Amino acid sequence: MLQIGSDPKIAELPSGIRIAYQIFPGKSQIPLFCVHGLTGNLRNFEPIAKSLSKKGITVITYDLRGRGKSDKPKTEYSPKIHAQDLKELANFLGYGKIFVLSHSLGSWITLRLAEKYPGFIDKAILVDGGGELSVKRKISNLIMIQSSLARLGRNIPNKEVYLEEAKKSPILSAWNENIQDFLLYELESSGTLSPSLMPKGETRPFGPVLCSIPPFVIESELKSMGGSMTLSGIALRFLKSPIEFIRSVRENRVMPYWALDFPVLVIRALKPNFKPGDELLPNSAIRKMKEKIKDLQVLELKDKNHYECVLLEDAVRDAEIYNFLKS
């Protein structure tokens, strides 16, 4: 049943949604599913997936609905919906119990998965996400990710310009083939180009391009968590529907840590994203996790920020993940 190869495969779920996934084979009976963040894709985890696969862990990466090569329906998006997709994808591949490694928004999805399907997760790794945050901190985090949202919906002359803009971003202090592949994977052509103008053998988008993540997807995701892509959008939501806004804020104020009745490893990025103190998991969030999650380990990555903690290679991180899964 498993399909292995360099190109993503497609699983059609019972819901009708088609999800793109990739398998890095190993010998482990329980596979590790990797759940990316808000504007990520399955290429986010290549450094980790390759490292763990070599050590014998079966790793499965996939595109959330609305990203990459997965379907992008004009419907609601939320961690609960993604949790359902993950359960159906695991069942499609023949698994009744899984490990989960999730980054940023993916950590919220892991929490909702544990809440909805007790006994399904064997162990979980939450990478720089899933913390209980104050309203002030949530707004601070939203401001921090604005630069990563700026690429959505923009027509760019070509992929070379797209990559050059990314290289100039202060978010990334390093550049390598993994980061380049992650960014190229999310591109799609935004116009038509005569076949006669296409370079011979070119398979990736050529000519005018744009990021394949529709802005409406991200707006819906943030709305489900009580936010918006802009601060003005938050204010507008409150003015238009204060009751619904307050309900969504209350629902996401307290995380369902009670559902994490299995070992949990939290990986925390401590390198500033733009300025000191703007980490996505502040000390207050870690304290609450330690209070409420009964079997918790914490790994701090002092030399990596929120994005680098998954995009860059790190032998110590990968060894800690492997030891955690095998213990």
Rank of each mutant, 00 (worst) to 15 (best):
S190A: 06
K168T: 00
F262E: 02
S189A: 04
R268L: 07
P276F: 10
K271W: 11
S212Q: 08
V266S: 11
G233N: 06
I179E: 05
F206L: 08
R253I: 01
K240Q: 11
Y185K: 12
Y162M: 03
D278E: 12
A174G: 13
L260W: 10
L183P: 03
A150H: 11
S194Q: 04
T192L: 15
L172F: 13
F262A: 03
P215Q: 12
P170W: 14
N178Y: 15
I156P: 10
L152Y: 03
N178Q: 12
C211T: 01
E244D: 09
I171N: 05
A235D: 04
S173M: 09
V266W: 13
R250C: 01
G207A: 01
E160W: 14
S212N: 09
G191L: 04
I218Q: 10
T230L: 06
G227C: 01
E221W: 14
S189I: 00
V266D: 05
K275A: 07
E186Y: 11
S196F: 12
E202H: 11
I243M: 14
N252C: 04
E244I: 01
S248I: 02
P157C: 02
Y185Q: 10
E251G: 04
L222C: 02
E188M: 12
A166K: 04
L197W: 13
G201V: 00
G201F: 07
E279Q: 15
K168M: 04
V264I: 11
A259I: 00
F206D: 02
P214W: 11
S173K: 15
L270G: 07
F262P: 01
V209N: 12
G207S: 00
I267G: 06
Y185L: 10
Y185P: 04
S148N: 07
R154N: 00
M229F: 04
P215G: 03
D278S: 05
L260R: 08
R154P: 00
F182Y: 15
L193K: 13
P242M: 13
K159D: 10
L236H: 10
W175V: 02
Y257W: 15
I179R: 14
A174K: 15
Y162W: 13
E279N: 15
I234W: 13
Y185W: 13
I213T: 05
T230E: 10
A269W: 09
S248Q: 15
L210T: 00
W175D: 06
D261T: 05
P256E: 06
W175K: 15
I267P: 13
S248C: 06
G207I: 00
D278F: 09
L280R: 13
L210H: 14
R250S: 02
S190Q: 10
K275S: 13
L163I: 03
K240F: 10
V266A: 12
S190G: 07
A235F: 09
R247V: 01
S220L: 04
K275C: 05
V209C: 10
K271G: 01
G207Y: 05
N252W: 14
S189V: 01
L210S: 05
R204S: 07
K167E: 03
T203P: 05
K223L: 07
E186V: 02
G277M: 07
V264T: 11
E221Y: 14
G226Y: 13
K159C: 03
N176P: 08
